[in-house]
Design a protein around this nucleic acid. Structure first.
Lengths: 376, 376
DNA sequence: ATGCGAGCTGAATCTATGA
DNA sequence: ATCATAGATTCAGCTCGCA
């Protein structure tokens, strides 16, 4: 079982990070306040949606729709909901690292208030993501469009929004080599994945699909990161985090949910490190100075570099700069100047000739990087 | 030409509904205040989004992205934007019939503030609708998900939300006899539909596609209804309303936009009553991400994929990439690398084993595509 | 005519690092 | 904190020129 921490015990504990990979039992804001500053890499929050339901809803066959009418989803007014939202988001902001990010999921009942509050608290929205449901509940009265999606907001606590983890290259590689879009398609959580009690009834009314959490976690965290869920519920965040080699912290008030989540997480088998390696692109590779190519003898001072369509040439100087007519400087600067542009990636712009063929000097970086790799 | 009404002239006019099928030139709120109470059946509003752009943005080929940096999109703060939003929504509420509805479109920059303000003003949200773009602009720096959608809020001024027009059956009939969902797929406005000046440049930076307006108007109004657009711009709302046999009123400040919209609307030929059927959108694109197979549980991280003649193998990683020896990346890239080729279709190259037999992973796409096809 | 390839463009809150 | 510099980064669809 994942360990459970009554909040009072956690406050008394002297062990640093005793809360790691455990569920803190208590009020969301109070529990957050017991965690250290800047201790969490990613937050996934599935707060109460503040549904404002009228009477009971029946299907066309007169069966009753099992509505979310739990006590924890009741708020007296929008003002009360806003105050609640502000409080837990502020508490989240403190425990989140400046390079961390937060996800909040909601529907049209609450997501506008959550989004506005995030902005008011100076979070910086990176994307809004639409979860399109393959199998949403129909609209039984035929008075609206079928409500077939929910919305997630992905935001950085830093208004400049830099330095956060985003596994762009892995997402693109996994998506037929095109960028991952802001609209995602997943089934709702049902079947074997849906936690049920001995009576066969669902344990939690709004259990989220693991695939949704997996996409969020794989997008915006690294193995070993700490992922916090302040409304832990049935523990989907914890189960997926564990499976994907991340650490988790959950906060939950209701003992029934804690029991179910704890058992669920205990049964999760983490993936091995080979399966968890994150695909990275050029950005993550070690830098290679242009002079390293000269020092390694792959290029020589006096040698001519050529642009792809042979429109421009430049000569390599011994100090690792280029000269082309009146322009001189780095491979990037000269590449930009000869084209009349502000910027240029010299590694892909400049080519060298080998047996009559032009190859980008970028290819030579690979040789250097292989040498570096051998040295450890 | 559609008639244009300087606001001062409208105020002096004694003719009832002189403003019908015309463009009122003036400030949004002031013009709304010149219209009678409860005179409008539907409002479509495309307010400024309050984009907060940093410096210039260049594409990878160094060309400049033509940003929306117009004066009308500049606000000093969220407070200023909220005050603006509140003012025009309040003015809209007065002119809207109790049985009417309002649509507001926006992006994550402004839609949360709009939605919260609607709720604060006691509008009743009926749906939030996602416009999924078939051809959105990419994210050039690879630091976010491609922003591939915008959001519309559809709301009633009556908190009980009764009596409004919703052409449920027509929408369902036009949608393969299943309910119309809250996620719609349309291309952005480009090509011949995009209004351009003599210089070939776009007249308006944010012209919306007619198909989008047609879906809204056909969903929530009847022929002969009055449709108001308080941010008329290039007049898409007016053009589509006229074509669909509805009356329109537009409000716009800028003379250039008024001129273009006026000429555009004059050229519109209204449809006959027989032809006023619901337009259908595009079908969902068939692309299936490799991750979708993992997310659906059809393949698992750690599982081995095999080439047809069992010459090559690769292991599936959790992020949806493959690894084979030193090579890693998308199914296509790894397929190419292990064969020493430039390109490879990973869908047909890689196989999974089932009861001793190899089947191409492409077969699993069929399962996913069936799900997607159901969504229309 | 038809096909092909190069070029252009769309509501965009779009970098990381070291001095 | 600012500033300079290295160098990484795009998808779908339309238009136009040319074979």
């Amino acid at each position: 079982m994942a360990s459970v921490f009554p909040l009072a015990d956690l406050r008394r504990s002297n062990t640093p990070r005793a809360w790691l990979n455990s569920i803190i039992k208590g009020d969301c804001v109070a529990a957050l306040e017991a965690l250290p500053d800047k201790s969490v890499d990613m937050i996934f929050a599935d707060p109460p949606y503040n549904l404002q339901l009228g009477g009971a809803l029946h299907r066309p066959d007169q069966s009753l729709v099992d509505a979310v009418d739990d006590e924890w989803d009741q708020f007296a007014s929008f003002e009360a909901y806003d105050a609640f939202t502000r409080a837990w988001l502020l508490a989240c902001r403190r425990v989140l690292k400046p390079t961390g990010t937060i996800w909040v999921i909601g529907s049209y009942h609450n997501i506008f208030r959550v989004g506005a509050t995030l902005q008011d608290l100076n979070f910086w929205i990176l994307n809004d993501i639409v979860w399109r449901k393959t199998n949403p509940m129909p609209n039984f009265k035929g008075r609206r469009f079928q409500n077939a999606h929910e919305t997630m907001i992905w935001a950085s606590p830093d208004p400049k929004g830099k330095g956060y983890t985003f596994n762009y290259d892995a997402l693109k590689a996994a998506n037929d080599d095109v960028q991952m879009r802001s609209d995602w398609l997943f089934p709702i959580c049902s079947g074997a994945e849906r936690l049920k009690g001995e009576d066969g009834k669902k344990i939690h009314p709004t259990q989220k699909p693991e695939a949704l959490l997996a996409r969020c976690i794989l997008s915006a965290s690294k193995p070993g990161d700490v992922i916090l869920d302040p409304f832990f519920g049935s523990g989907t965040t914890g189960a997926v985090a564990k499976r994907l080699g991340r650490n988790f912290v959950g906060i939950e008030r209701e003992q029934d949910y804690i029991d179910a989540a704890s058992a669920r997480i205990a049964a999760v088998q983490p993936l091995g490190s080979n399966e968890l390696t994150v695909m990275t692109g050029k950005k993550a590779e070690p830098r290679v100075a242009f002079t390293a190519l000269i020092e390694a003898g792959l290029l020589k001072p006096g040698q001519v570099l050529i642009s792809e369509k042979r429109r421009h040439t430049a000569i390599i100087r011994a100090d690792g700069t280029l000269v082309s007519g009146d322009d001189s400087g780095s491979i990037h600067r000269v590449g930009a100047r000869v084209q009349g542009l502000d910027a240029c990636n010299g590694w892909t712009f400049w080519h060298y000739e080998e047996r009559g063929k032009l190859k980008p000097i970028d290819a030579l970086r690979g040789v250097i990087r292989e040498q570096m790799a051998k040295l450890g």
